[in-house]
Each structure stands twice: as C-alpha cells, then as structure tokens.
Amino acid sequence: MRNLWQAEIYYLRKDLAFKSVTAVFALASLALVLILGSKGGYSLSSYAEPLQTAASFSILFYLVIPLHACFFATEGFEHGSVQNIIAAGHSKAKYFTGKYVLELLAVLGWLLEFYGLFYLFSLAAALITGAPVGHAGYTEDLAAGLTALGLNLLYLAAYCAAIMMLGMLIRKPASAVVAAFFFIFGNLLLSGYLKDASSAVLRAISEHSLMTQIFKFSGIYVENSQLILLSGTGDYIRALWIPAAWILLSLSITLTVLEKRDIQI
C-alpha cells in the first residue's frame, strides 16, 4: 500500500486538476474576504468569526472537490496505469482504497487551506484597514467553525465515496463526470425542491439528503423564511449517520464490483 500511495502522491503532484483545485480555493478565500469586506466592512465581532463565516461557503467544496474525485478515480482507466498497477501485484481493493484515502487527505488539505487562508486574509484585512476586532461570541464562533470543518470533512468523504464509486464503475472519464454532475445537482434538487413537496415521503427524502444536512450545518438552510440550524442530539446524530451510511454503501458496492469485474482498457 505504501508504494501505491507514494506513486499516487507523485501523480497528484504532477496533476493539473489537483493544482487547479488548490489554486481555486486559495483565490476563492481571498476573493470572498474582499467581497464580504467591500459590502459590510472588515470589522470582526471575534477572532473566531472568520471561521464561522467560512463555514457558510461550504457549498463551494461540493461543487469542486467531487469533480476532482471523479477525475482521480478514472485517471487510471483513462491512461491505462491501472493495468500496470494491478499487474504489479497490487489488488484492486488496495488500488481503490489507496486512491480513496489519498483523496480524503487531499480534501483535508483543501479544507485547511480554505479555512486557514480565509482566516488569515480576514485578520489581515481588519489589521490593514484598522477595522475593530471584538471578543463577543468567540467560543460559539470557534465551535461553529470547527464543527462545520469536521462535518465538511465527513460529508466530502461521503461525496467522494459515492462519486469515486461512479468513476470506478463507469471508468470512462466523460461519462463519469456526467454522472457526477447528476449526483451533485440531484442532491441539490432533492434538498431544494422536495422540501416543500406535499408528499410526506418526498419531504422525508429531502430531509435526509446529504445537501440538506450540509445546508444546515453551514447555516444557510432556510425553511418558511426561517434559518434552520442543527440543534439537539437528534439532529447531530442524523447529520452523522447519513454520510456514514453513504460511505459504507458506496465503498461496499465499489469493492465488491471492482473485485468481480475484469479490467479491459
């Protein structure tokens, strides 16, 4: 497994998609600080406020990272390297889990990059413009920011598991990207359109969709003109088991199918 990881890390270091996503998050963190500051000023209610603000932009991760996961899952089939890797004695299960774990590490890196840069840029902007920085609600902001960071990691793990499953099953990058789009925007639709449906079943589907949970912990879920956040143990448990179920289901399907299917490039 170590050899596989080293090789895949080497691949990522040379990968334009990986570099682009890293650049996108760096630029986005700077641009968002500037846009927010130009509208409402750079003053901060606490030193942890930028972390909480950054959480409200979580949706950005779900539009960009799953596409990278899709390309990363299919690149071996596109270029044929999966042939040489399996023929070198690595199992198909190791090949997939190696890629999945590495993608999660990349996700963690991107989250830390975005949150970290957003935080630094916000503080720097306040410092440069001489805007005041208060101490009100420091603990709450920090808790909300870190909770969103942790949950984003979990939900991105679920998204990556589902989309890498699609990539491994479909194998053709173009078709897999289309399927990934359907998954991402399908989730958005499930969350957005079905929440006001008259059918109880459809409302339940919307309530249990990944995107609804993401909106909730990001602090952007609005129902009947009311902002709804995660509150109470039940909400948090639901926010944990839904992505966990997606991860378990996606990984099980991928590993089972991958082991049975031949590799024909």
Partner: peptide, 20 residues
C-alpha cells in the same frame, strides 16, 4: 500505459514508486 502530461523520466518515476 503512460501519462501524457509527464515526460519519460516522470512516467518512470511513477512506476518506480509502484514497484517500490
């Protein structure tokens, strides 16, 4: 099975890691 965005040495670097 080669990566088109890498040169020969880089492709071999990838496979060297695969083979350990």
């Amino acid at each position: 099975s080669l990566y088109p965005h890498m040169n020969a040495m880089e492709n071999l670097g990838f496979y060297c890691r695969i083979f350990g």
